Each structure stands twice: as C-alpha cells, then as structure tokens.
Computed example of a mutant assay.
Amino acid sequence: MEDKIIENLRSMGCEFVEEHYSLLKFCIDKVVTDLNSRCHTKELPKGLEESAIDRVCGEFLYALKSTGKLEEFDLEQGVSSVKVGDTSVNFSGTSPDAAFNNLIGTLRNSGEELIKCFRKIQF
C-alpha cells in the first residue's frame, strides 16, 4: 500500500522524502485503524483499499500543511477538479489555498459511502 500512496502523492505534485516516512506510517495506521473500527473488522476489506489510499494521502497532506512542512508542494499547480468514484469536485474560481483545502477534504473522506457495505455486526 505504501508504494501506491507514494505514487499518488507524486502524481499530485508532492515529492515524498524519506524524513516524512514516519509521518506516512502514522497516517496509514490511523486510517486503517479507523476503517477497521468502523467496519468492525480486523483487516482492511479489499474493497476499501483504494479509499484507504486516498484517505492516507489526504491525512498526510493535511498533516504536512498543518505543521508547515508542505514546502515542496506547489499550490499554484492548477488542481481544477477532482473525481473520486462518482463524486466530482470542481475548484475553478477558487483561490489555490481553498482549492487545496477542498482537495484534502475530498481525499480524507474518500469512500465514505462504501464503508457501510463492509460493516459487520458487532456483538
């Protein structure tokens, strides 16, 4: 999963550096634990892997931005729209910072509608 996450981050214009590896691991653990607890499973369901990857990317970018370490990311790179599943968000007419915040929000909530499909009854 780590390789796919790093590939996604690079495709969004964020160069992954080794000093961020522990933060990436923390974000992966956080997202997987959250999804597992919401689905009442011990392992991440196969159908939620792509959503988990998007969520980890969103958490990672949010953490970098919150700590002021998002230097290598170009907010002006022109994210005009994002499509995740059947949801599309158009950012035209917004400031680069607002568009980036929308992108992070969309990534962090990716697959929200799928979670109920993988929930198990907990006794």
Rank of each mutant, 00 (worst) to 15 (best):
S92V: 15
L48I: 01
I121Q: 09
D3H: 12
E15H: 10
C27L: 02
S66K: 11
S80H: 13
R38C: 03
G105K: 07
S11R: 15
R119E: 15
E18A: 09
V84G: 01
V31D: 04
L23K: 08
T33N: 13
G78C: 08
E15V: 12
G58Y: 07
V56C: 03
E2K: 14
D54S: 14
M12E: 05
K46C: 04
Q77M: 13
V89N: 12
G58L: 12
F123Y: 07
T33M: 09
P45I: 10
E7V: 04
K30N: 08
A99I: 02
F60V: 06
S95A: 15
G93S: 10
L48A: 02
V31G: 08
C117E: 14
L103F: 06
N109I: 07
R55T: 06
E113Q: 11
E18S: 12
S92A: 14
Y21A: 07
N109G: 11
N90V: 15
L64W: 01
R108I: 09
V17P: 00
F118E: 07
L75V: 06
G68N: 12
E71P: 00
D97H: 03
L24N: 01
T67F: 13
D86Q: 13
S95L: 13
F118W: 12
C57F: 01
R55G: 04
I5Q: 00
G105T: 05
L61V: 08
E18Q: 09
D34Q: 14
E2N: 08
V56Y: 01
L107H: 05
L114A: 12
G58K: 05
G85T: 15
F100C: 03
I115T: 05
T41D: 06
V82D: 00
A99N: 03
K4R: 11
G93W: 07
T41W: 01
G85K: 14
E18M: 08
S81W: 10
N109M: 14
E72G: 14
F118G: 03
T67K: 13
V56I: 12
T67C: 13
F100Y: 05
K25E: 13
P96H: 05
S66M: 09
I121A: 09
S22P: 00
S110I: 03
T106I: 05
G68T: 09
K116R: 02
V84S: 11
D97K: 07
D97L: 08
V32H: 03
D29E: 14
F60W: 06
L9R: 00
S51V: 01
H20E: 10
D54H: 15
L35A: 09
K46V: 12
E49Y: 05
R38L: 07
D97N: 03
T41F: 02
R10G: 06
C14H: 13
D74M: 11
F26Q: 11
G85E: 15
H40P: 00
F100M: 06
I121F: 12
L70D: 12
L44H: 02
V79N: 09
F91K: 10
I28T: 10
S88T: 15
L9F: 00
C39Y: 00
